[in-house]
C-alpha cells in the first residue's frame, strides 16, 4: 500500500524503537504556479496492518499509541507485529531487553 508510511526511530535511553505509521490520501485540488495542490482532506482508518520486523535488537514488547490492539508474535523465527488500527498517525513503541 503506497500510502502507508512506516518510519522507525530509536530512543536508546528508553531502550526502545519507535515505529511511526501514517496513512493519508491527498486529493488533487487545482494548481498553484503550475504545481499540483494535493490536500489531505480526510482520514481513512486502516485495520490489521501486519509487519515483519528485522531490527538490530530483538523486540520484547510492543505498546500502542493510537494503534488499536497491538500484538507481537514470532512466525518462523521472524518477529511479526500486528497493528490493530491506524487512523492517520500512530506510534508503536517497541522495547528491547
Amino acid at each position: 500500500m503506497p500510502g502507508l508510511r512506516v518510519i522507525l526511530r530509536h530512543q536508546p535511553e528508553n531502550k526502545r524503537y519507535l515505529l511511526h505509521t501514517l496513512f493519508s490520501t491527498p486529493r488533487l485540488r487545482g494548481q498553484n504556479k503550475s504545481t499540483n495542490i494535493e490536500v489531505i482532506q480526510e482520514k481513512v482508518r486502516l485495520r490489521d496492518i501486519s509487519l515483519d520486523l528485522k531490527l538490530p535488537r530483538s523486540i520484547t514488547g510492543a505498546e500502542s499509541v493510537d494503534a488499536g490492539e497491538v500484538t507481537l508474535s514470532t512466525v518462523g523465527g521472524i518477529q511479526r507485529l500486528l497493528i490493530g488500527e491506524l487512523n492517520g498517525h500512530a506510534v508503536v513503541p517497541l522495547s528491547y531487553a
Binding site: 500500500m1 481513512v44 501486519s50 528485522k54
Partner: peptide, 16 residues
C-alpha cells in the same frame, strides 16, 4: 535481503 520492515499483506481500509 532482510529489510527492517516488510508488510505481509495489504491492510484493510474501514469506514468511519
Amino acid at each position: 535481503e532482510e529489510p527492517m520492515v516488510t508488510t505481509t499483506h495489504e491492510p484493510c481500509p474501514v469506514s468511519g
